[in-house]
Write a protein that binds this DNA or RNA. Structure first.
Lengths: 218, 218
DNA sequence: GTCTATAGAATGATAGAC
DNA sequence: GTCTATCATTCTATAGAC
């Protein structure tokens, strides 16, 4: 290979680097999700990324740095969903959007969710600082919002933290436990219709559970 | 060491075997939960069980057989909780007891829950037959019960599978994600009072969410 | 920037004395 | 039934030619 493709279009070294890093990161996400940090091998990641193993180590010197990058990417996606929470003052609307968004992430980025789950399960050796800083701050501001809703009588009095845990648990379950769900669904993943039903039900039970009439939003 | 303890009471070989197997299994559960199958090392398990590594291999020839035994034990504990479901026909009572029991298991056997979570996360290489047989049957009979409640108008019309997923997700979250919960709780595990609050809230939101007046039971 | 060959470290499992 | 010494394997990471 040179610096050209069959199209004749020139490709700079930066592009090659970008392309390779991208396919390595994608491969790494799926392998780390499936086997955990220790169980994952750099050979398998290289194989899925379709490059020689030595080349992988050229881009990411150590397995740990590669892992860290994967976790970084996931965490950013998670934080994006937070916006749904902030845009509005109506709990029905805010929670419907936040829960729906979290369900969508579970469907679209199940590998990312699994890597995170695996990390927390194993006492978060890599992301512990995220938990203590960014996630902590995020949680504090959102529990404050929930508490305000309670004080205003907009939702039933609940412990805001435990409400968040319920939302996280229920939505992420559809990513982290998708193998179990798939098996119980006759070996097939939930289809689009089933997934929408599940999403709608999660929203409805939680909203009803805290005293909101669901469907008020949208 | 011989076949006696300081009490002078004779100890048969069966007792020694039983004692050693027990401490190995306890150590294995905690190590597998913390590091996953691949990440766990037989040396560390042996160290925590306070026996030499070679001795561990005397009782459990391979790491995989030991792991299998650990998973077996957990699965049995999980199945026990199922009884709460069957004893009675009142959904408020049955669900309150089932959810409470599942929360208690998350508190009392967090390691077991983590091993299971880790296994499902990694596509259940060891327990796949459990998922397809025992868990499948268990789920089928319980969804039938839930469906009957719906048909009798005792609870709101919901998809029974997704309701079970919500219960599993929410209750097991307190075991699987206890590190994250602990970090967000200022580095301390939830105390007894907090845990009871969480349990009560999980029961209340879910029951209210499906149209049951909570507290009707008990 | 790519890739073969291999060094170096960790670890599951066993042999064999006690 | 216990335990030291060690083998065999696997895997991360690198050296060095192209």
């Amino acid at each position: 290979m040179g610096t050209k493709l069959e199209t004749g279009k020139k490709i700079g070294k930066a592009d090659i680097r970008h392309e390779n890093e991208k396919s390595i990161l994608e491969a790494a996400e799926s392998v780390f999700a499936e086997y955990g940090f220790k169980g994952a091998t750099t050979s398998l990641i290289a194989k899925r990324a379709k490059i020689p193993k030595a080349n992988l180590h050229y881009y990411f010197p150590t397995k740990e740095k590669l892992y860290r990058q994967v976790v970084d990417n996931i965490f950013n996606i998670w934080l994006e969903a937070a916006n749904s929470f902030d845009d509005c003052n109506d709990p029905a609307d805010a929670l419907t959007r936040y829960i729906s968004k979290k369900m969508d992430i579970s469907r679209d980025h199940p590998m990312g969710s699994k890597v995170w789950a695996n990390e927390v399960l194993h006492k978060a050796p890599v992301i512990h600082d995220y938990l203590e800083t960014t996630l902590r701050e995020w949680t504090d501001t959102r529990t404050a919002v929930i508490q305000r809703w309670i004080d205003q009588g907009k939702i039933a009095p609940v412990n805001p933290e435990y409400l968040l845990y319920m939302i996280w648990a229920t939505t992420q379950h559809y990513a982290d436990y998708n193998h179990q769900i798939e098996t119980l669904n006759g070996g097939k993943p939930l289809n689009a219709r089933q997934f929408e039903d599940a999403k709608e039900q999660v929203v409805r039970i939680i909203l009803t559970g805290i005293g909101i009439e669901p469907g008020k939003a949208q």
